[in-house]
Design a protein around this nucleic acid. Structure first.
Length: 928
RNA sequence: GCCGGUGUGGCGAAAUGGCAGACGCACAGGACUUAAAAUCCUGGGACCGUAAAAAGUCGUGUCGGUUCGAGUCCGACCACCGGCACCA
């Protein structure tokens, strides 16, 4: 940011504290203090460290998400979200008032219900991630491997009534808009993965003998002819509606024969009940660990395959997730690994409907040991006589076998190929003579299209896009968070006993303060702590307040906007201000640096020329890839749709700084004892050395281990810079004075220092200028590309050269200090001041404080060399180097190269085929 | 399993397809010093040479390709790190 400011940009470089939420609260509980107290202490400590590091933050813009003046607006934005719906026509969020209510909703209660079901913030009873240890529910994004992200406690699935935000409505835009922003490839990929878009179709299977329909989602409609059974998720209510009371007469023993808890179910209904109990007893963790063996039960119902007319059995199995797609699948064991594993358990048919390409067949037949291939051929009456007839014969035989009995193959084929075996010759086919479609011979892409079109024309299915992303579980049963500005009341018009309905508080009621509680700890059953404050919760008219709180991410979803206008009491951000900083035409550089009280000091930032909308540069770690960065984009889009912000995306350029590891190459952690405390480093080497080392270690994005020797190295460099300026004798005096006289002010101490007598008010010589401008060029370019490490090495080169100068022109040193200033501001500023006292400059622009001095421009003309060294190669191998005039012609160069004594032995007696000349770069002689 | 990223001296790392190892750390030798620290100077990829040099050979995870020329581009693989993981 110092660099951009020196270039004349208006740089917004703020700092703030995201201090609500689990980490802060967990810390408070551990230390037995109130979260407000620990939060304040932590902020004070971080602030001290950060200030001593010399970041040029603008503290007038400081924000704190736990400050009522701040969370007032977090609650305000929540109300905006609550009072909006997603219009699929316009693909935008719109005020709830514009939602058209269909005429069939007549009563007020029905209308209200309809509206509430369309809000972007809604209440739903859904299986959620409940963490007993933390006493709260968590978002999907906060659960890792069945454990909580914070603390690593077990998480179980449990149906609960919770607030949700309709982020799924924005899935498409969140995905598409990634293309226009400058983020790292891997980070975009992570978000894409999390959004999980997949294209496919929904297909309706009628349930035989019932009016119900099983709707499935598939990405492979082309394999519909191979769908030999149906699976629905255990949680599905549909299962209850279609389950049979008796096994039908033709149910095979293999299908009914599942025992659970040692009980053999006597009816499909009993099987379903048993299986549900069994599935619910498994935690998420167990579900994934036990993924080897698939389980499930047949529920007796039969469904009709819409293309083949075949009757297929319906199963319930927990390998199908209730929360993805339609919660039901068509199983194609021949072409899906999971179905392939499940089918043999119940001896379900496996029918090939896609012919794999030759290389797959060949590889599969050859790579598998044993003689399964020969045996399988014998079984179906084919002869194995390809051995001496080569590859084509083998392929022909393999193809025949695959079409007849793909189950004999060791693995399923899940890729793309040519459709076969349609229409199927299933025994049920005659009952449905309207099924006339065939896709045999088509490629997978063609077959998908043809079958989807056909389904659509018959009203049996539809092309669909599905996302893995689920709605954002937004409520927490904790104390330390923003209270919801929502109250619950009984509907006056509704019949008694109807559940209470929710209603927004008016904006004038904000901020809604949380109650003061002495016992703020979570309760085991999921009762929110706020419910203990009866006076706060119960309102005079009989309605009650919502007692859940918002998650940690709420405050950080929009803090970058508050920085723009941190003190504004009228609005979350002023319109003009928002436009000035965030708008596309903004001529400023803007920098964001996230900070939360629970994270270490890890941010570092530099502004960027703003020709782009939104935040120009956002430096942060990857740990927020699918949390903060996704949530913030979502909120921003809602605010954009409602007209409160001027860009569709909040963060234009995002750089992931790499983690700094401990000296042992492991992640820093207290338990490993490899934590480096910035206070210690700064105490020993100073803030400048600390800053410089962090930047010199390597590229910004890389993960790199800490090395204390490295700090000593850059410390030595700073010492060399000092000696470049300061007279050695006075340096000793200064040190003595500093050590003894505690009473002396910094100014008095500084006066003891004499600048080196070699510094003179003379103009720089040509070689000196060349050294200086080479340095300016490199540092400028490297800062633009955020390559701090090479910029520093360029300055080291300069100092190594300049320290040997007999006369040191003050002007050159002055320029160097401006280059050094972004990296080591304290030292640079000190030397600058001293230099200006002893060698006042006539240039008024440079008499000001260094922090506001103008960045030097390099002069390319000064860098031109008279003589250059040219490498000479023979057949691409370096054989000699020649120093020639920079303007030497090609002919001269060629002659010089051929005349070289070192070259001669390699070309004598050989035919020169050609000579490659790269002007000013190299000569390569190619010989036979 | 799938998706990303990264592989270069003892270490952190540089290198628009054109002199691999800039810069720094650690190390070794020297100067200054009674001595040490600090500072300054010198050296350094491996091999083979040699009194010492020079010359030469090899060398950027492995194997192959494109090119006059590859750390850099292409293909296959290996290792490590990160993310996702029954997503139909």
């Amino acid at each position: 940011s110092r660099y951009r400011r020196a270039q004349g940009f208006n740089v917004l470089h703020p700092m703030g504290w995201d201090a609500f939420g689990l980490p802060a609260e967990q810390y408070a509980i551990k230390t037995g203090q109130h979260p407000r107290k620990t939060t304040e202490e932590n902020i004070a400590n971080f602030k001290r460290q950060i200030k001593s590091l010399g970041f040029s933050y603008d503290w007038s813009r400081e924000v704190d998400t736990t400050d009522p003046k701040y969370f007032k607006w977090t609650q305000w934005i929540f109300l905006k979200i609550y009072n909006s719906w997603f219009n699929p026509e316009t693909n935008k969020a719109e005020p709830i008032e514009t939602l058209p209510i269909p005429s069939e909703f007549k009563t007020e209660a029905d209308k209200r219900n309809f509206r509430d079901n369309h809000r972007l913030a809604y209440v739903a009873e859904a299986p959620v991630n409940w963490c007993e240890e933390l006493g709260t529910v968590l978002a999907n994004e906060e659960v890792i491997d069945g454990k909580s992200e914070v603390g690593g406690f077990p998480v179980v699935r449990k149906p609960m009534r919770q607030w949700m935000l309709r982020i799924t409505a924005f899935a498409e835009r969140l995905l598409n808009d990634l293309e226009g922003i400058d983020w790292s490839h891997s980070l975009k990929e992570m978000q894409r993965n999390w959004l999980g878009r997949s294209e496919g179709a929904i297909v309706d299977f009628k349930v035989a003998g019932k009016s119900e329909v099983i709707r499935v989602f598939t990405t492979r409609p082309d394999t519909l002819f191979g769908a030999t059974y149906i699976v629905i998720a255990p949680e599905s209510e549909l299962a209850d509606r279609i389950v049979e009371d008796k096994w039908s007469f033709d149910t095979s023993p293999a299908v009914k024969g599942t025992t659970l808890f040692g009980i053999e179910p006597k009816s499909p209904r009993e099987a379903l009940q048993l299986y549900r109990t069994y599935a619910a007893s498994k935690s998420d963790l167990e579900r994934t660990e036990l993924s080897k063996k698939k389980t499930g039960v047949c529920i007796g119902a039969r469904a009709i395959n819409p293309v083949s007319g075949e009757l297929v059995s319906v199963f319930v199995a927990d390998y199908v997730l209730a929360t993805y797609g339609t919660g039901a699948i068509m199983a194609v064991p021949a072409h899906d690994e999971r179905d392939w594993e499940f089918a043999p358990e119940f001896r379900l048919p496996c029918r090939a409907v896609v012919m794999p390409p030759d290389d797959w067949l060949s590889k599969t037949v050859r790579s598998q040991s044993g003689n399964w291939f020969t045996e399988a051929l014998t079984q179906v009456g084919l002869t194995n006589n390809f051995e001496n007839r080569g590859e084509p014969a083998l392929l022909e035989t393999a193809r025949k076998l695959y079409a007849i009995n793909c189950a004999a193959f060791p693995v399923p084929f899940v890729g793309e190929g040519k459709s076969i075996n349609s229409p199927s010759n299933s025994p049920d086919h005659h009952r449905h003579e309207q099924y006339e479609i065939s896709i045999s011979g088509l490629s997978t892409v063609e077959a998908k299209k043809k079958i989807t079109d056909w389904l659509e024309s018959k009203g049996l299915g539809k092309k669909t896009v599905n996302y893995k992303l689920r709605d954002w579980l937004f409520s927490r049963q904790r104390y330390w968070g923003e209270p919801f500005p929502i109250i619950w009341k009984r509907d006056a018009n509704g019949p008694s006993g109807q559940p209470p309905c929710h209603e927004a508080l008016p904006e004038s009621a904000l901020p809604l303060m949380p109650p003061e509680l002495t016992d703020y700890k979570p309760a085991p059953g999921g009762e929110p702590p706020l419910a203990r404050a009866k006076d706060w919760m119960n309102l005079p008219d009989g309605s009650v307040r919502e007692t859940n709180t918002m998650p940690q991410w709420a405050g950080s979803c929009w803090y970058y906007l508050r920085y723009l206008d941190a003190q504004n009491p009228q609005s979350f951000v002023g319109n003009d201000v928002e436009n000035y900083w965030m708008g596309a035409e903004s001529p400023k550089a803007k920098v964001q640096s996230p900070k939360s009280a629970d994270l270490g000091p890890e941010t570092l930032d530099i502004g960027l020329k703003s020709t782009t909308p939104g935040v120009d540069l956002y430096v942060g770690g990857t740990e927020h890839a699918v949390l903060h960065l996704l949530y913030a984009r979502f909120w921003h889009k809602v605010l954009f749709d409602l007209g409160y912000v001027s860009t569709p995306e909040p963060f234009f350029k995002l750089v992931n700084q790499g983690l700094i590891l401990g000296e042992d190459g492991q992640k820093m952690s207290k338990s490993r004892g490899n934590v480096v405390n910035p206070d210690d480093v700064m105490g020993e080497y100073g803030a400048d050395a600390f800053r410089l080392y962090e930047m010199f270690m390597g590229p910004l994005e890389m993960v790199k281990p800490w090395n204390t020797h490295g700090v000593a190295g850059v410390y030595k460099f700073l010492g060399r810079v000092w000696r470049l300026f300061v007279d050695e004798k006075s340096e000793t005096e200064f040190e003595q004075a500093e050590a003894t006289a505690e009473t002396q002010s910094r100014g008095e101490l500084l006066e003891k220092i004499q600048l080196s007598a070699a510094i003179k008010d003379v103009s720089a010589s040509a070689p000196q200028l060349k050294t200086l401008h080479a340095c300016i060029k490199k540092v400028t370019e490297d800062l633009d590309g955020l390559r701090f490490n090479t910029a520093i090495s360029a300055m080291m080169v300069f100092v190594n050269d300049a320290i040997a100068w007999e006369t040191k022109p003050a002007s050159a040193l002055r320029d160097f200090l401006i280059l050094l200033q972004p990296f080591a501001p304290h030292l640079a500023e000190e030397l600058w001041e001293k230099l200006n006292i002893e060698h006042p400059t006539s240039n008024t622009e440079q008499r000001i404080a260094l922090a506001y001095a103008n960045w030097p421009k390099f002069d390319a003309a000064l860098l031109i060399e008279n003589e250059i060294e040219i490498p000479i190669q023979v057949n691409g191998k370096l054989r000699d180097r020649l120093v020639v005039a920079a303007d030497a012609t090609q002919e001269q160069l060629e002659a010089a190269a051929l005349a070289s004594d070192k070259i001669k032995p390699f070309i004598d007696g050989k035919e020169i085929k050609k000579i490659v000349m790269v002007p000013k770069k190299l000569v390569n002689i190619v010989v036979a």
